[in-house]
Amino acid sequence: MFKIFKYSFFDLMRSRWSLIYAAFYFLFTIGLLWLSNDLSKVVISLMNVILILCPLIATMFGVMYYYNSREFVELLLAQPIRRSAIFWGQYFGLAASLSLSLVIGLGVPFAMYGIFQSAEIFNFSILILNGILLSFIFSGVAFFIALRNEQKIRGFGLAIVAWLFFAVIYDGLLLLALMYFRDYPLERLAIGASLFNPIDLSRILILLKLDISALMGYTGAVFQKFMGTGIGMFLSLSVLLLWIVVPGWAIRWVADRKDF
């Protein structure tokens, strides 16, 4: 798997798209740092962008990369290696290259700005960590979708729908549910539902740092326990990791049973 990973990673890192992706983050961050004199405001703006863009780009690139490399995969499949090694290698290669673009695009401007001497360094690293986790999760989901759908158009469509679902629709439905059932105790539902959406999860992970003052204003005991202690951080991180493990396992399951 590591060999495939290595070559996928090098292949992708040299692609124009990785460069454009990194350049976008770079310019965006530079712009924000330049326009805004408040570092925490920059972190919040970047959070919004990362929560939307990382999943979107990972989903799109994941599907695209799968379909583009399908013929080459046939060659690889005929080599004496495991199937899962091929797809895991490609998946991790893609996710790692996206993550590297993110880290460079965000990290260089912040390093130039002097984040390492700043108190914001912790928030910044949480931000980067979330971006990386989201890149992994959504390229995994994209690979899974593409593996399940040989038709490109269908695969792309489903991937976009998946992104849209996690980025917007899910929260809309959750809000509707919360408002509709507001006479009932809902805090378990609210927290539980967030665990099933990786975007919500990483958002909450960032909120725990940025908006803890507001979060502490909520009265529920479960909430207090979740937000106020390390439990929230720990649980969010572990569920996010689960979001990498499960699609990864699903990729293997589908790949092992698929005809190419």
Partner: peptide, 23 residues
């Protein structure tokens, strides 16, 4: 394979190395 498509950003030598790395 019927269709010869390879990772676009690798050179020929790198591809050969890659396959030899695998096999």
């Amino acid at each position: 394979p019927q269709i010869a498509r390879f990772p676009e950003n690798l050179s020929v030598q790198e591809l050969l190395d890659f396959i030899q790395d695998l096999r």
